[in-house]
Amino acid sequence: MEQLYGYVLYGVTLASMGGIYALLALGLNIQWGFTGLFNTGIAGFLAVGAYTQALLTTPLSSRHIGGIELPIPLAMLCAMVLSAIVAYGVARACIRLRSDYLAIATLGIAEILRLIFKNELWATNGPRGVSQIPRAFEDLPPPWNAIAFMAMVLLIVLVVYLLMERARVSPWGRMMAAIRENEEAAAAIGKHVAHYRTESFVIGAAMMGLAGALLAQYLKQIDPQVSEPVTATFLVWVMLIAGGSANNRGAILGAFLIWTIWSATQILTGFLPNEFVAFGYTVGNLQVRSAYVRVFLIGLILQFILQRRPQGLLPEKRPAASRPSSAHTDRDSS
């Protein structure tokens, strides 16, 4: 009974984090899945959202700027807006770059943002970060506070999903797919390709900012490590590709599935003894070593999914049935 209760609580944390990653994956899906924008700077927009949320809602502190103590929903809105503004600036400079170059440029910009958060001590408390960030519903008695927060995250994911599904089948969504598949043709029929791409980039980034705002609340503590690229950018890519690029349900499924794998593989290492003796020689720190095996397994699972289901678990569904489905192969060969 007690054990079951524990699993339920663990499930709540899995779902909360999974939901935050689902928002990131949905944001990336607008950019990559719909429009073909190769954004590897997810971590940067996540960090902008997280720091906005943190600095606007925390009480006055001598360690960083802020002390405004905005209500949580208002701060979340600000986080989205600020992320969108930063994304607009990035888009102005980079949106015309072709996919691989855009990828490297956004990666670089995200790292520069991280360095700024890390070095501007007066504003962000530098590497020590901001703590005591208020979380929605935290005043409820446990475990309801955690459950209510999870419910809020999942509700936001649902709303974003429904909006995106409408957008996908709308003329706007079809336009995006057209740009992704044949930019020249889209331009030839008089569409402002750069304009549409910018729109998609900014909307996606706003969702990443929102995810950042939720993450800051969930962790109650952020520092520049939140925008560390492996867990904040590449893991999201893995989620989207594994779940199914250009498929919103796929993005959500991928997020929950990969986060569960990422998190739950830890349980395996707990079963190992610390050391064992073989031939009179002690092989020590087995648990430490097993942590490396875990990372190896994550890499291997990734390779397996990539090779066995290159279209993702839920492949793209076209709004119009008549379109040819060769998009995935000619997307990057120009």
Partner: peptide, 20 residues
């Protein structure tokens, strides 16, 4: 396949080699 597949495969490889 698109370049993203290779890039993600190389990312997985990066984690695997480092773990080894």
């Amino acid at each position: 396949s698109p370049a993203i597949m290779l890039m993600i495969a190389s990312l997985g490889m990066m984690l695997m080699i480092r773990s080894v």
